[in-house]
Design a protein around this nucleic acid. Structure first.
Lengths: 232, 232
DNA sequence: CATTATTATTTTGTATACCAAATAATAAAT
DNA sequence: ATTTATTATTTGGTATACAAAATAATAATG
C-alpha cells in the first residue's frame, strides 16, 4: 500500500490511477476468498487500516464496496464483519448463478470466437489431467477458470461482473464442496458435455447442461452444511 | 438531511440507524431514475454535498455505492458522472434481466403463495384498466410493479436485489420505450400469458414467456436509439 | 458471590483540513 | 489575432479530528 516509492517507470507513482479504496477492496476480497478472513470475523476499521498502512477513509470506501458485493456486512456503530451466509442464502445465490451461466452458455454459442473455444477446450483438458492427483485448491481454481472463460466469451460486461460477484460469494462453500474428490468424475462429465455443446454451438444443450451442473452444486453444499451440523 | 432536529418519537434523532451514505444514495438514485440528474451530467462533490446539507464524506460513500450499482461512474481526478450507457450495454443488461426474470418465474411457481398470486393477478388487471388512458409514467410504474411482484414472490433475496439493480439501470430507456403506446397491446398479451403460467404453476411456460417478453424489449430500445440518432 | 450501576475505553459516523492533479484563466510570444 | 506558457482556481483523494454510540471494565449494592 506504500505509494511513495518510485514505480517501475521511474515516475514518482504520483496518484495511482486506481483509487486506494479499490485496491484495498481487492486485497480484502482476496483475504476473504482465501479464508484468511473467516466468515463472521470482525474487520475493525482502525486496526485494519493501520495494518494496511492507510487511513480509515479509503478503508471505509473499500468496506462499502464489499458490502455492495455481499461479502461484508456493516451494522450501525458495530465493527464491519465478513458475511456468513446461511445455507438458504447460498442456495439462493446458486440459483441465480445457475441462470447466469445458462445465459452465458447460450450467448457464448453466438459470440465465442474459435480461439476462445480452443481456450475453453484447453482448460477442460487441463482439468481432466488434474483430476487424479491435483491439489483440491488447484483443481478448484481450474474448474472456476473454465466457467469464467465461458462467461468471458459472451463479451457481456454486466454479465461478467455480476457472475464474478456471485462467484466470490459462493467461493468458500464451493471450494469446501470441491474437496470431496468423489464428485470430480461427474464434474468432468458435465464439462465435456458443455464443451461439446459449445463446439456445435448448440445453445439449448449448452445452456441446459450448465444450468443443471450448477443446480447439482446445491445438493453438494447442502451435504457440506449437514456434515458441519453433525460435527457440532 | 438535517439530523439535528428531534424526530417524531421526541428523541434527539441521534445517530440514525441508517448511515447517511445510504440515505444520500437513495436520494441520488431517485434523482437519476426520475431524470432530474441526466445521463452524462456531472455530480461535483462539494456542490452536491452542500446542496444536500452534508459533508463530502457520506456523499462519497453514496457515490461509491452508486458506482457499484452501475448508475454512476468515477474516473480519477474527474467529477463523478451519471452513467450514460451505450445501446450495446443496455442490450447486455436486458439479456441478463431476461435470464433473471425467467428464473424468477420458475421459482415463483414453486414459492408463490395464493395471496401473492392474487396480488400479481390484481396488478395485471390494474394494468389492463390503465391501458387506454393512463399517463405513460403511471402505466410504466404499474408495469414495473407487476414484474417486481413476481420476483418478490421467489423470496430469493439476492435475486430480488440484483433484479432491482438491473431495473434501475434500465429504468430510463424502458420508460422512454414505454411511451410508445403502440406496444401496450402486446405487453398486455404477454402479461396475461404470464399470469396464466403462474396460476397453473407451469414453470416452463412462465419462464419462457418472461424471457421472451424481456428480449422483445431489446428491439424496442434499439428503435429508441435509432430515432435519437436520426434526430441528431 | 452475584448482579446491577456507573465509569472508562474503544469504535464507528461524520466533518474538516490538506495535498496533488486537472481545468480555467491570464499573460506572453509569434 | 492565434497559439503557447504560465499562473490561479477548482476538484477529487486521502488523512486527521471530533462527536456519539457501543462495549469493556470497574465499582457499588443486594
Amino acid at each position: 500500500m506504500d505509494n511513495s516509492r518510485p514505480n517501475p517507470t521511474g515516475k514518482l507513482a504520483a496518484l495511482s490511477r486506481q483509487r486506494l479504496g479499490d485496491q484495498i477492496a481487492d486485497a480484502l476480497r482476496n483475504q476473504i476468498l482465501l479464508g484468511e478472513l473467516q466468515p463472521g470475523s470482525n474487520i475493525p476499521e482502525r486496526e485494519t487500516a493501520s495494518a494496511l498502512g492507510v487511513s480509515r477513509t479509503p478503508l471505509r470506501e473499500a468496506l462499502v464496496i464489499l458490502e455492495g458485493e455481499g461479502l461484508v456486512s456493516m451494522s450501525p456503530a458495530r465493527s464491519p464483519r465478513v458475511s456468513n451466509p446461511s445455507l438458504e442464502n447460498l442456495t439462493h445465490l446458486l440459483y441465480v448463478q445457475s441462470a447466469l451461466e445458462a445465459l452465458a452458455g447460450e450467448c457464448a454459442c453466438d459470440q465465442m470466437t474459435e480461439q476462445e473455444f480452443k481456450h475453453i477446450e484447453g482448460l477442460n483438458l487441463t482439468l481432466q489431467a488434474m483430476s487424479e492427483n491435483a491439489d483440491p485448491i488447484d483443481f478448484f481454481t481450474a474448474d472456476m477458470a473454465f466457467h469464467e472463460a465461458i462467461v468471458a466469451a459472451t463479451k457481456n460486461a454486466p454479465l461478467i461482473k455480476t457472475h464474478k460477484q456471485y462467484n466470490a460469494r459462493l467461493w468458500r462453500v464451493r471450494f469446501m464442496s470441491s474437496r470431496k474428490r468423489i464428485k470430480r468424475v461427474s464434474t468432468l462429465d458435465d464439462h465435456s458435455e458443455i464443451v461439446e455443446g459449445l463446439r456445435t454451438r448448440n445453445k439449448q444443450k449448452t445452456s441446459a447442461v450448465l444450468s443443471r451442473h450448477l443446480r447439482t452444486a446445491i445438493d453438494n453444499i447442502t451435504s457440506i452444511f449437514d456434515e458441519e451440523n453433525q460435527a457440532n
